[in-house]
Amino acid sequence: MKTLHILKKAPDASTKKIIELQSSGNEVKTIELYKGGASYDKLVADVFSFDKVFCW
């Protein structure tokens, strides 16, 4: 399963742990919006191509 995590701010401990736990056996990608420089075109493409999307 392909899972996308979009981080609007730096993740807290529980969020980090959830992402880390989901990485086991799944393809996980993290987009750190809070760091700036994101390509919104690429983000939208990812949102529709990944199976699950989380916004933290």
Binding site: K17, I18, N26, C55
Partner: peptide, 17 residues
């Protein structure tokens, strides 16, 4: 547990944190 929650959240079509 947080471990179980991480796995269970993958069962949903939409997750709203």
């Amino acid at each position: 547990t947080l471990e179980e929650m991480a796995k269970k959240l993958l069962e949903y079509d939409v997750v709203v944190p």
